Amino acid sequence: MTNTIQPQELRVGNLVLIDGVPKSVIEISIHGVCYVDDIKLFETYGNISPIPITEEILIKAGFEKSFGTNWEYERSIGAIKMYCLWNTEWYFELGGIYLGDHPKYLHQLQNIYYSLLGKELEIKL
């Protein structure tokens, strides 16, 4: 796999690809992660891939297509505004202050969301 994930990038609850199927991480160790697929299973980091952010994922995560603005997708949660220029860069603002993070993968977006709001980004894949 070319895009392996490092342990320090993950939190319990992150979604990753295992054998091409989205799975939710339930435990993290130095050797790999556990997930549930009818039973609790383990997978090493070399066999785990990140999930690229796509239009479908943005919509499932509550982003809406913007019309009449410079942004293609946006989501506001209180004072936090998240914007996306599709296929270029993500921009995050908190009360008008640019936060400077550019996630490419769903687990990165989940982590930023959790850091800013203290709750999980709800998304069903």
Rank of each mutant, 00 (worst) to 15 (best):
I39V: 15
W90I: 03
P22E: 05
I30M: 12
R11Y: 13
C84I: 14
Y98W: 06
G62Q: 03
N14H: 05
Q8P: 00
V16H: 03
I59N: 00
H107G: 11
Y98S: 11
V25R: 04
N87K: 14
Q6G: 00
G13S: 09
P103F: 11
E74C: 04
K40N: 03
E120F: 04
L94K: 11
E55Y: 05
P50Y: 12
N70P: 00
Y98K: 14
L109T: 05
M1E: 08
E9N: 07
E56L: 06
Y83Q: 05
G20Y: 10
Y113A: 10
F67Y: 11
P50A: 15
G62F: 08
T4M: 08
E55T: 13
W71P: 00
D37W: 08
P103A: 12
I112A: 10
K81Y: 10
D101F: 02
S49D: 15
N47V: 01
L94G: 03
G62H: 07
T4Q: 09
L17F: 09
Q6I: 02
L116Q: 14
H31I: 13
E9C: 03
P7C: 10
I18V: 15
E120W: 01
L10I: 11
F67I: 13
D19K: 13
E43N: 04
L85N: 09
Y83G: 01
L125M: 00
M82I: 15
S115C: 12
S24L: 01
G20L: 08
E9Y: 00
I26A: 03
L99P: 01
E9T: 04
